[in-house]
Design a protein around this nucleic acid. Structure first.
Length: 281
DNA sequence: CACCATGTTCCTTG
DNA sequence: CCAAGGAACATGGT
């Protein structure tokens, strides 16, 4: 479920829901997600600690905790299939619950089908993240400077978390389409007008996705096969909201919404890219 | 059986 | 140092 907009919307829900709650029990069912820490270390650090807030950095969730006078941070990442939500303590745990924090009447659950995500006290990964694409530092001057210094295909660059923290495979394709930029173009060979449009499209795509996620009914737990949240239009709890949300992602063979040319799928750096060969050149 | 999947990290090669 | 490519991680959908 995770790119910057999804994480942002999740954080906005979790922060007020967790603030002030004290962690009484810690159940680790998949120690792998704690890497590099161990279950014992996590239990020792979290027991008795109180949530003071939740923030976001890139695709990471930052849980601010306090015990006594000591403040510290717990860092979460959802990988490809992670979810985080609260549910009544008596309800059965989902099959792939990786970590469960008992908060009294409620459990805070981190579940992750593929266990690619993380929940850990080690925050060092944050040091290597680039600027927030919706933040001040990610201005046109920074953007153009980065473009001029890289020969990488632009699509690959958008996925580089030290270029901008939080853009993922879906919104990379969407932003390039909105800006009419061909995904294989080397950064330094982008024309100025393409750069300006892309810079703007990145912010627009992320901003609109956040706004969209803030207005639809959300099912954090997910209702089944397709993700009940953002990416797919099949979730019953959001039917009617999804039309024309993602313009090119996962639409290979379908007509481009601008020109009816068939959307193409290519592979770059091992990931699918979707684009319109006519609009994006 | 095949291939695909919202992400990151590690390894090898150049 | 950088970049590119591939594999690994692990499970499920089509």
């Amino acid at each position: 479920m995770p790119e910057l907009p999804e994480v942002e919307v999740l954080v906005r829900h979790l922060s007020p829901a967790l603030r002030g709650k004290t962690i009484r029990t810690i159940t680790v069912r998949r120690a792998r997600v704690l890497r590099p820490a161990t279950a014992h270390e996590l239990v020792r650090a979290l027991r008795g600690a109180k949530f003071t807030g939740v923030r976001r950095r890139g695709k990471y969730l930052l849980f601010a905790l306090q015990r006594g006078r000591k403040s510290f941070m717990l860092l979460g990442h959802l990988g490809m299939t992670g979810r985080m939500f609260l549910q009544p303590a008596r309800e059965p745990l989902p099959k792939h619950a990786a970590v469960v924090l008992g908060l009294g009447r409620q459990n805070f659950i981190y579940e992750d089908t593929r266990y690619f995500g993380r929940l850990t006290l080690d925050t060092r990964v944050l040091d290597s993240l680039g600027p927030e694409p919706l933040g001040r530092k990610f201005g046109l001057p920074y953007f153009c400077e980065e473009m001029s210094r890289s020969a990488q295909p632009i699509k690959t660059k958008l996925l580089d978390q030290k270029f901008a923290a939080g853009i993922g495979n879906i919104y990379a394709s969407e932003a390039l389409f909105l800006a009419s930029v061909p995904p294989r173009r080397g950064c330094k060979w982008l024309r100025f007008d393409q750069g300006v449009r892309l810079h703007r499209a990145i912010r627009l795509v992320l901003y609109q996705a956040i706004r969209y996620g803030s207005t639809i009914p959300l099912n954090w737990r997910g209702s089944g096969k397709r993700d009940g949240l953002f990416y797919y239009g099949t979730a019953p709890e959001a039917s009617g909201f999804y039309e024309e949300r993602l313009l090119v992602y996962d639409r290979a063979g379908q007509p481009c919404p601008n020109c009816q040319t068939l959307i193409r799928r290519i592979v770059q750096a091992g990931r699918s890219t979707y684009y319109c060969p006519k609009c994006q050149r």
